[in-house]
């Protein structure tokens, strides 16, 4: 059951990603991007990462997309006819970038991850049964990775200060 569902969600993700980058209207692009993020949430569930899937929907498909729509509104991107990838330089840039990213995909597919990044099959499923989908995140996050967790708050603090400095320059 998992594999066919993976193909379905992966297919939807790729299709909507393609639609996202080919739409002329920025708002239509943003809506296709939401579709991509929802399909990724489905893939996270298939990977037994339920908490991440919920956060994907709440934060990415919800909050981050609101930011994207705000940027579209603020920059007043109506229905623009042109893109910034035009002419010979644009074609060359997109060709080089596209080739690089495709090559990266091939390399990533070949690489075998290091020992500590590999879990025996079914580890996630049994851990979810033992501690619950959220408890599985909480245990390592608040015990093993305490310093990164605390530093995250400093990162968020920097984001707050940055946003205020950029947007409230006048006062």
């Amino acid at each position: 059951m998992t594999l066919p569902l993976f193909w379905v969600f992966g297919g939807i993700a790729i299709l909507s990603g393609f639609m996202c980058i080919t739409r002329r209207s920025p708002v239509a692009s943003a809506l296709w991007l939401i579709q991509t993020m929802f399909s990724l949430a489905g893939i996270y569930v298939l990977l037994d990462a339920q908490f991440i899937a919920v956060i994907q929907v709440l934060v990415y498909a919800g909050a981050i997309m609101v930011i994207f729509l705000f940027v579209i509104m603020l920059l007043n991107l109506g229905r623009t006819k042109t893109t910034d990838m035009v002419g010979r330089p644009g074609q060359i840039t997109s060709l080089v970038l596209g080739t690089l990213m495709t090559l990266e995909l091939f390399v990533l597919n070949k690489v075998i991850p290091a020992e500590q990044f590999r879990l025996p099959e079914g580890t996630m499923a049994t851990m979810t049964d033992e501690m619950g989908a959220v408890g599985m995140i909480a245990e390592p996050l608040f015990r093993g990775y305490i310093v990164p967790f605390e530093i995250t708050s400093v990162l968020l603090l920097a984001a707050v200060v940055g946003a205020v400095v950029l947007a409230k320059r006048k006062i």
């Binding site: 909050a63 940027v71 946003a163 947007a167």
Partner: peptide, 12 residues
């Protein structure tokens, strides 16, 4: 741009 500031603070 005030709307953007509110959205940014909301995300954080």
């Amino acid at each position: 741009v005030k709307f953007y500031l509110v959205a940014m603070l909301f995300i954080v």
